[in-house]
Write a protein that binds this DNA or RNA. Structure first.
Length: 241
DNA sequence: AAACCATTCAACCGCCGAACG
DNA sequence: ACGTTCGGCGGTTGAATGGTT
């Protein structure tokens, strides 16, 4: 267990504490959280300081209720990623992981879980939703496509050829911000088909590969103000090597 | 007006992986 | 190789607030 120094203040932050923390980070920048309480003259633990800054004091934090498009995005991303709140929040400018998590727990979970239950009763196994659970944060050095460039390129070429055979040309992306995601889900299904037809691997294997491939990239940009555009551009670049 | 209940959300806790000595 | 420290994450808690009886 990580030791929290005795006598450290807990609970709600006062305006004075907020000002001290803000000043400290404005002068010293983010990071080095273990030094922040000392530098700011705060009787708080590093985690408390970090959390207060990230969830409340940081500039450009959007407060207030979530918009329809934001909610839509949360639902879609949650379907894809599961409870990866920091990743989901990275797609919502000005929203924090804590905000998204709270919103999900208070507003969406109640609404969506009953629907999911109904769907489960009605539909067979093939319709089940599987959230991709990435092994987060870093690339694995053992990833095949990092180990062997030639193998990866060969696989991609095979995929591209099969892709042409299997699928009609995709309709051009619309700019409404939603269909973009719909297309992505479609792509995942197509990729799944292709992968299965290439090596005959089972569903679990596919999820494992897809998860490591896509989401290791996603997680690599989580720190700070992550930009998900980069993630998916990276992903596309990968397949277009 | 008061008591009770439900909801919201800021903050804490424990765990994990990376970095470093 | 191992132990320690740090940053970061998701799950959970509980105080504050709002609504209902």
């Amino acid at each position: 267990m990580e030791g929290v120094p005795l006598g450290v203040r807990k609970g709600a932050w006062t305006e004075e504490e907020d000002n001290l923390l803000k000043k400290c980070i404005e002068t010293n920048g983010e990071g080095k959280w273990h030094q922040v309480p000392f530098k700011a003259g705060l009787n708080r633990c590093r985690k408390s300081c970090r959390l207060r800054w990230l969830n409340y004091l940081r500039p450009n934090i959007k407060r207030g209720s979530f918009g329809v498009d934001e909610v839509d995005l949360i639902v879609r991303l949650h379907k894809l990623l599961g409870n990866r709140w920091s990743l989901i929040a990275g797609r919502l400018p000005g929203r924090t992981a804590n905000d998204v998590k709270n919103y999900w727990n208070t507003h969406l979970q109640k609404k969506l879980i009953p629907q999911i239950e109904v769907v489960k009763v009605k539909t067979p196994r093939m319709m089940e939703t599987k959230a991709i659970r990435p092994r987060p944060r870093t690339f694995s050095k053992n990833l095949i496509w990092l180990k062997s460039k030639t193998t990866a390129i060969a696989n991609i070429e095979t995929r591209n050829n099969l892709f042409k055979q299997l699928s009609p040309p995709l309709s051009p992306p619309r700019d409404d911000g939603i269909s973009w995601w719909e297309n992505m889900f479609v792509d995942l299904e197509i990729n799944k088909e292709i992968t299965l037809s290439i090596d005959g691997s089972n569903e679990e294997k596919w999820h494992e590969k897809e998860t490591q491939g896509i989401l290791a990239i996603g997680d690599s940009s989580v720190q700070g103000e992550s930009d998900w555009n980069d993630i998916f551009i990276d992903k596309m670049d990968l397949w277009d090597l």
